[in-house]
């Protein structure tokens, strides 16, 4: 089943609303004083967790596409990635604005001295070129191969995000552990595909050489 382009558009709109809803619900809870005794901490925590969730959701698109055959879901990936960046920015803003109130010396000290903030900040900085190059113009300009290489930065970014969460918690590591396991599974899957592909190329290359007598057959990952 392949949706028509009209269906894709309406699905995109629905997905957009869905992705935006955590932010809207958070702002509503903030307005209604429902975020508990320390709303700034709650806001920082929630925006950070949504950043991680969207990173992982973005990483799920390719495996889902591969195993379900729904090639059209690739068309939602950019939006998901951009939402990860948007929540990451919100997370940084809650820290810079609400938590530290633009106390730049303190912020610089934090980034430099506290490993978990260093790691989180690095992850967000690495996300920025990805967000900036998430348009057709950038893909054309960079060329598919380079663009793809650049966007593989999402792999280390997700791991840095997990590490950031891990180092932040005082003792109960259950939640960061869950995110880390999912991230490792999603990345491990890719490593496994790559290995499969390599073996196939090796085996195929040998056979093809015999059969086609040196004719080059390009194997392109689809």
């Amino acid at each position: 089943m392949t949706p028509t382009s009209r269906q894709i558009s309406s699905l995109k709109l629905t997905l957009f609303a869905l992705c935006l809803s955590p932010a809207i619900l958070l702002l509503r809870d903030l307005q209604l004083d429902r975020l508990g005794a320390n709303p700034i901490e709650a806001l920082t925590r929630a925006s950070g967790e949504w950043t991680l969730r969207f990173l992982l959701i973005t990483l799920t698109v390719t495996p889902l596409r591969k195993y379900s055959g729904w090639h059209w879901i690739l068309r939602f990936r950019r939006m998901l990635g951009l939402f990860a960046f948007a929540y990451g920015t919100m997370h940084l803003m809650t820290y810079v604005w609400l938590d530290q109130f633009f106390d730049w010396p303190a912020i610089v000290r934090d980034i430099y001295k506290r490993p978990f903030i260093t790691v989180g900040f690095t992850a967000l900085v690495l996300m920025t070129p990805l967000a900036l190059s998430s348009n057709a113009f950038a893909i054309r300009k960079l060329g598919g191969r380079r663009w793809q290489a650049l966007h593989r930065a999402i792999y280390p970014i997700s791991l840095l995000g997990c590490l950031h969460f891990w180092w932040l918690v005082k003792k109960d590591i259950t939640e960061p552990l869950i995110y880390t396991v999912i991230a490792c599974a999603l990345l491990g899957l890719r490593a496994w595909w790559r290995e499969q592909e390599r073996r196939k190329q090796l085996a195929g290359g040998y056979l093809q050489q015999q059969r086609f007598d040196g004719k080059v057959i390009r194997i392109v990952a689809k």
């Binding site: 320390n38 109130f101 934090d110 001295k113």
Partner: peptide, 19 residues
């Protein structure tokens, strides 16, 4: 004396905005 993972120089009084 900082906690190894965060500064102890300031605090947020619950119910207040600034530190």
């Amino acid at each position: 004396v900082d906690h190894p993972r965060w500064s102890q120089a300031t605090e947020r009084r619950i119910g207040e905005f600034g530190k």
